[in-house]
């Protein structure tokens, strides 16, 4: 609904709640679709009147609307900024006409008047702040993103490799335009990195858990693992227990100079999803399994 709710109901701005209610009832009776089967517009008009009543028929909402905190649709309005908050810093509308005569006789004021005249004249545009959510791997490896800004066009943003959560990227000249030939301001983009489902970042390094089978843990061998720098083969040593950490050099976070940090893989042995008969038989027959005491150090 657009338009003033007071006008919709045909009441004055200082109408009492009773007057508003009476006005609404009168209009509802007139416009109710079921009482106006021949009027196709009745439904739309009735809805508008009902919406107006929702807003100013409720004393609390009405007060908020009157104060300008919400608009006719009931949506919150951001707090009003007054022109004086911008006037001094922006200065594109300001003139030196008020003290031009003083500037004629006073060197200091003449200097300042000159600044004003030139700046009436050239003023750098303000910097504008944005926020951008980025996927973990895009931040780690670097990426190009397009930020669509309603009403202000698109911004192509290059995320440098190794960008950290909370980092601010500065795009020169993409802020508010400069006034009369002054330089444009910059766009300041605060980057928020989304967490990854298994990688975590530790400085220039990446850490994650890698599940391995019992056979792989016992026999060792080569397994294929993902890394931010692509899938690689890792060599498992024989007899690897859960918790063992393998290091893959140069498979971590990219740095500006092209090098990379390392990836640290923590092994985690996982048994098959369904109980395995052969494994159970082995478990009960295996003599070394009965003498090994991994919890020895946990006495008391």
């Amino acid at each position: 609904m657009s338009g003033d709710p007071y006008e919709r109901l045909g009441v004055k701005r200082d109408a009492t709640q009773e007057e508003i209610q009476a006005a609404y009832r009168r209009l509802a009776k007139k416009l109710h679709p079921d009482l106006n089967p021949g009027n196709p517009k009745a439904e739309a008009e009735f809805k508008e009147v009902a919406a107006a009543n929702d807003l100013i028929g409720d004393p609390e909402k009405r007060a908020r609307y009157d104060r300008g905190e919400i608009d006719e649709t009931g949506a919150e309005r951001p707090p009003r900024q007054y022109y004086r908050d911008f006037a001094d810093s922006q200065g594109s509308y300001g003139t030196g006409a008020g003290f031009a005569d003083y500037a004629d006789t006073d060197e200091l004021l003449s200097e300042l008047f000159g600044r004003r005249a030139r700046g009436d004249g050239r003023r750098r545009g303000r910097d504008v702040a944005y926020s951008l959510d980025v996927d973990f791997l895009d931040a780690v490896n670097g990426a190009s993103k397009r930020l669509g800004l309603p009403g202000a066009g698109d911004l192509d943003v290059t995320i440098p490799p190794g960008t950290a959560d909370g980092q601010t990227l500065r795009l020169r000249g993409k802020g508010e335009p400069g006034q009369n030939g002054g330089p444009d301001g910059d766009a300041l983009i605060e980057v928020h990195v989304r967490p990854h489902r298994f990688y975590t970042r530790d400085g220039d390094d990446i850490r994650f858990e890698v599940p391995i089978t019992l056979a792989e843990a016992v026999l060792g061998g080569r397994i294929e693992v993902p890394t931010p720098a692509g899938r690689v083969a890792a060599t498992l040593p024989k007899n690897a227990s859960s918790g063992k950490v393998l290091r893959l050099k140069g498979r971590g976070v990219a740095r500006r100079d092209g090098s990379r940090g390392d990836a640290y893989l923590t092994l985690k042995i996982v048994l098959p999803d369904a109980p395995d008969e052969a494994l159970e038989r082995f478990g009960s027959d295996w003599s070394a399994g009965k003498t090994q005491d991994p919890r020895r150090a946990m006495e008391g």
Binding site: R84, A87, D88, G91, T95, A97, L109, L112, R115, R116
Partner: peptide, 21 residues
């Protein structure tokens, strides 16, 4: 009114610059 406000802010800027100097 707008002209006067603009002059006012021009003066405020100059005053600010004098103070800074």
């Amino acid at each position: 009114i707008l002209d006067l406000i603009d002059q006012l802010h021009g003066l405020r800027s100059a005053l600010h610059d004098v103070s800074a100097t």
